[in-house]
Amino acid sequence: MASPNTQIDRNGRARVAERVTTKVTDALKSDGAFESGSLALSARIAGAAAAAVVNLPVEARQKLTKRQTELVRGIRRLVETFSEDPGQGKIELPVPETVEPSNGEGLGPIVSADEGNRLLAEFAVARKIEDWAGPVAGASELSRNYGIPRSTLHRWQHADEVIGLLKGTRKHVFPVEQLIDGRPARGISAIVGLAGSHRVAWLWLRQSNPVLGSRKPIDLLKHDRVDEVVDTARAYFSPQ
């Protein structure tokens, strides 16, 4: 178990990494040299490097300073090992001369639909939608509290500009966290398009993302950092 001091050091390094990642992202956002998907990764690498250096002893930093060229060259080689070259970045694993054949346990006995539902019910756990989606509101509540007309809400939902979650069999509710100044944050439609559904998109948007400095993507969208979030979502939902 890590000591309290070790935990403090880890938390401190995580905060440094997040700050550097954010600053590098802001600095390079308008730089046309960065292709889609490369900005978030570059910023994250810079943050990780800064966090690794910040707590080094003075002697170690001085040695690294004298060997900066070698250090930069090593980082470049490390990144290049993950290139598209099929001969790069692979780990050789020993292959045993003999392999014990196995047919596995199979699928087991076939049961009826009723029995299958009964067995599934023993494992399934009912959860309120608010437990995983956060505060939600229906169309009437949004109209009353936020002044959003039903027709506008319907148009946003049809265009995937606002996330609507099915509650029960027919009713849709809308996570309040996606709203800013009475309208959904920009970029939600792009995330829905990549995720393939409103439910999957919202699950992803509410989870802390290590590529985004451990921040929630929806929080960055609400700060108008759309390109950064969309690039990260594209890398997540459409891996090359």
Results as ranks from 00 to 15, higher is better:
residue 229 V to D: 10
residue 212 L to K: 00
residue 91 I to T: 14
residue 235 A to L: 15
residue 90 K to W: 08
residue 99 V to H: 11
residue 212 L to M: 04
residue 168 G to M: 05
residue 173 V to Y: 01
residue 186 R to H: 14
residue 23 K to S: 14
residue 96 P to F: 04
residue 112 S to E: 02
residue 63 K to D: 14
residue 8 I to F: 07
residue 63 K to C: 10
residue 110 I to R: 09
residue 140 S to Q: 11
residue 211 V to D: 07
residue 216 K to S: 03
residue 137 A to N: 07
residue 23 K to T: 08
residue 237 F to V: 04
residue 223 H to S: 15
residue 166 L to I: 13
residue 101 P to Y: 01
residue 181 D to C: 08
residue 171 K to W: 14
residue 129 I to C: 05
residue 61 R to D: 06
residue 62 Q to E: 09
residue 155 R to V: 12
residue 141 E to T: 11
residue 115 E to C: 07
residue 13 R to I: 00
residue 153 L to C: 09
residue 50 A to V: 04
residue 157 Q to M: 13
residue 116 G to C: 09
residue 113 A to S: 13
residue 133 A to S: 09
residue 5 N to W: 12
residue 92 E to F: 13
residue 234 R to G: 04
residue 190 A to N: 08
residue 67 R to Q: 13
residue 26 D to H: 10
residue 151 S to T: 14
residue 91 I to V: 14
residue 78 L to Q: 08
residue 222 K to G: 12
residue 184 P to Y: 08
residue 105 E to Y: 13
residue 20 V to F: 00
residue 136 V to R: 05
residue 171 K to F: 14
residue 51 A to M: 00
residue 223 H to M: 14
residue 149 P to V: 08
residue 208 S to K: 13
residue 13 R to V: 00
residue 48 A to G: 00
residue 38 S to T: 15
residue 37 G to Y: 01
residue 70 E to D: 09
residue 109 P to N: 03
residue 43 A to K: 00
residue 145 N to P: 03
residue 36 S to T: 14
residue 42 S to R: 02
residue 114 D to Y: 10
residue 132 W to I: 10
residue 178 Q to E: 06
residue 91 I to E: 01
residue 41 L to Q: 08
residue 146 Y to N: 15
residue 128 K to G: 15
residue 36 S to Y: 08
residue 239 P to H: 07
residue 145 N to V: 15
residue 104 G to S: 02
residue 33 A to G: 12
residue 161 E to N: 10
residue 63 K to P: 01
residue 143 S to R: 14
residue 50 A to N: 02
residue 131 D to I: 01
residue 93 L to V: 15
residue 159 A to G: 11
residue 197 S to H: 02
residue 158 H to Q: 15
residue 7 Q to S: 15
residue 184 P to A: 12
residue 27 A to F: 10
residue 54 V to M: 09
residue 79 V to Y: 03
residue 2 A to H: 06
residue 234 R to P: 00
residue 171 K to Q: 15
residue 233 A to W: 01
